[in-house]
Amino acid sequence: MPRENGFGYAKEAVVQVNTLASAVLALSVTFRKDLASHAGSASLAILQWSWALLIAALAAGVFVLLALTGQLFKETDAKPADLYATGLRTFWIAQIVSFCAGMALFGIFGITEV
């Protein structure tokens, strides 16, 4: 697989996670009155933490895209772009962990409020 394809696949994965995070965030904020009309303070805290983690996933995703761009633009013949560079990998892991944690908390909120 050529290196450019690897960077393209990485970009698409990051964009898909950002799309999912923003969609869940937008819909849950839009319908928060319906979702949390009878929620207790603990459930509301779970929902707010879910939102915070989804926002963190979006921010980390933007940084991943910036790091991908930086890797591609600093590529030379002597030093090829590194898809596994530390800065890139750190933001990528942060995005996945915060997205999964945010979705888990959103799921917990949904289960407790059904």
Rank of each mutant, 00 (worst) to 15 (best):
G87Q: 07
A101E: 04
C100A: 11
I96G: 07
A56E: 10
L58Y: 07
A67N: 10
S98R: 01
L65D: 05
T86R: 13
F63Q: 11
F99Q: 00
W49T: 15
A60I: 04
A52N: 08
K79S: 08
A59Y: 15
G70H: 08
D77Y: 10
A67G: 11
F63P: 08
G61D: 00
S50V: 05
A59V: 15
F91H: 13
A81Q: 00
K79N: 11
A85D: 05
I96M: 07
A52W: 12
A85M: 00
L83H: 02
T90E: 12
A81D: 02
D77I: 14
W92T: 14
F99W: 04
S98H: 02
I93N: 06
Q48T: 15
A78I: 14
S50W: 02
L65G: 04
A94K: 03
I93H: 07
T90Y: 09
L66V: 15
A60V: 04
A78F: 11
A81C: 01
V62P: 09
A52H: 09
V64T: 03
S50K: 00
A94I: 10
A78W: 12
A60T: 03
L68D: 00
G70M: 09
T76M: 10
I96Q: 06
F99M: 01
A45T: 15
S50A: 06
P80Q: 05
